[in-house]
Simulated scan of single mutants.
Amino acid sequence: MRSEVALLSAAFTPIYVGIVFLGFTPDHRCQSPGVAQLSQRCGWSLAEELNYTVPGLGAADETFLHQCMQYDVDWNQTSLDCVDPLSSLGANRSHLPLSPCQHGWVYDMPGSSIVTEFNLVCAHSWMLDLFQSAVNVGFFAGAVGIGYLADRFGRKLCLLTTIFINATSGVLMAFSPNYAWMLVFRLIQGLVSKAGWLIGYILITEFVGLGYRRTVGIFYQVAFTIGLLVLAGVAYALPHWRWLQLTVTLPNFCFLLYFWCIPESPRWLISQNKNAKAMKIIKHIAKKNGKSVPASLQSLRADEEAGKKLNPSFLDLVRTPQIRKHTLILMYNW
């Protein structure tokens, strides 16, 4: 059961660090139809074409020039020859006028990324930062709200809901027609993916006793590390970002099978005055583990005899000195 839930941690990897592959920014330069025609007429190699037509090439401190600027030259004029064509316009290239890229960019990479497809470079490079900021904002909002929702409606329901929304939005992102829609679906993924990851962590720690919580927590994190290794291999095999996004998203639909594989948390059921259901699950777990039900749990009263169920509240985070200390420590860590 713990290994099944740990798969959630591995599947969370593409959302957490997928920007490394989805938003990869290769070396690029301005695209110019005139340069392409002149290069074809003169029979230049790629190195010669770059040397003759790209400003600031080879200078480490002038990366912006060769990636985002072009010579403001009419490359179709007949006075340009094939041997250092700019020499006829000035003795020093640094004095020639420059202009931003007018016809898009040429990217030095196989495949594609969201950067190359939507041209998120130069003046639009901030849009790549916004893409990652959107998922991080979703992480924050989802992590803050999911604790209350999981306490209010149950771990299992919230887990299945976040899995479905995460998988659906991930697929829709792979088919996004433009940057705006891609950003919306990425924000939705951020809202539910971190929340689902946290619910998975809660579930595996609530299924085991206090002495095993550290062990299963480490196991959950190890699964995340394995996900990193798998993601690198998949990204190498699929250099096109849409196929990569689709490939790492579709397996999430398989987690909907948890409806039949994963029971509700017995601890949550007990807190909601559903002792009969909790005891049924506890006895099943004990039978699978070859253990007997602890005496402290055998004394649980039936639902109709139990006390009032616990209603969650954000005030629970600061209700006692011990909880206040833990809350402040976790807030500081975040």
Results as ranks from 00 to 15, higher is better:
residue 160 L to K: 08
residue 205 T to D: 07
residue 118 F to R: 08
residue 230 V to H: 04
residue 279 M to H: 07
residue 284 H to G: 09
residue 211 G to Y: 11
residue 143 A to S: 13
residue 79 S to A: 08
residue 316 D to G: 03
residue 116 T to M: 01
residue 224 F to Q: 12
residue 25 T to V: 12
residue 262 I to M: 12
residue 159 L to R: 07
residue 185 F to C: 07
residue 332 Y to Q: 13
residue 218 I to A: 12
residue 234 V to Q: 00
residue 312 P to R: 06
residue 50 L to W: 14
residue 230 V to F: 12
residue 71 Y to G: 04
residue 172 L to I: 12
residue 244 L to A: 00
residue 93 R to H: 09
residue 287 K to I: 01
residue 278 A to T: 04
residue 118 F to W: 13
residue 40 Q to F: 00
residue 320 T to W: 12
residue 167 A to H: 06
residue 115 V to H: 01
residue 96 L to R: 01
residue 191 L to N: 15
residue 156 K to T: 06
residue 233 G to F: 01
residue 216 V to S: 15
residue 283 K to A: 10
residue 219 F to R: 01
residue 106 V to Q: 07
residue 103 H to N: 12
residue 57 L to D: 11
residue 138 G to A: 06
residue 177 P to A: 01
residue 12 F to H: 13
residue 41 R to F: 14
residue 256 L to F: 03
residue 252 N to F: 13
residue 266 P to R: 09
residue 111 G to Q: 00
residue 292 S to R: 14
residue 176 S to D: 05
residue 284 H to D: 09
residue 272 Q to I: 01
residue 208 V to P: 11
residue 5 V to M: 14
residue 58 G to H: 14
residue 155 R to W: 03
residue 300 L to F: 07
residue 286 A to H: 08
residue 304 E to L: 02
residue 8 L to D: 11
residue 8 L to N: 15
residue 20 V to P: 00
residue 17 V to M: 02
residue 119 N to C: 02
residue 316 D to K: 14
residue 188 I to N: 07
residue 305 E to D: 12
residue 16 Y to C: 06
residue 265 S to N: 05
residue 282 I to F: 02
residue 48 E to N: 04
residue 164 F to G: 08
residue 221 Q to N: 04
residue 200 G to W: 06
residue 66 H to Y: 14
residue 274 K to Q: 09
residue 267 R to H: 10
residue 309 K to V: 07
residue 135 V to S: 10
residue 76 N to W: 06
residue 114 I to M: 03
residue 14 P to H: 09
residue 163 I to T: 12
residue 14 P to T: 03
residue 274 K to M: 08
residue 270 I to L: 15
residue 245 Q to G: 06
residue 251 P to S: 02
residue 263 P to Q: 08
residue 178 N to V: 02
residue 197 W to L: 08
residue 22 L to T: 08
residue 266 P to D: 10
residue 102 Q to T: 15
residue 14 P to W: 05
residue 81 D to M: 09
residue 277 K to D: 13
residue 135 V to K: 02
residue 257 L to D: 01
residue 199 I to M: 02
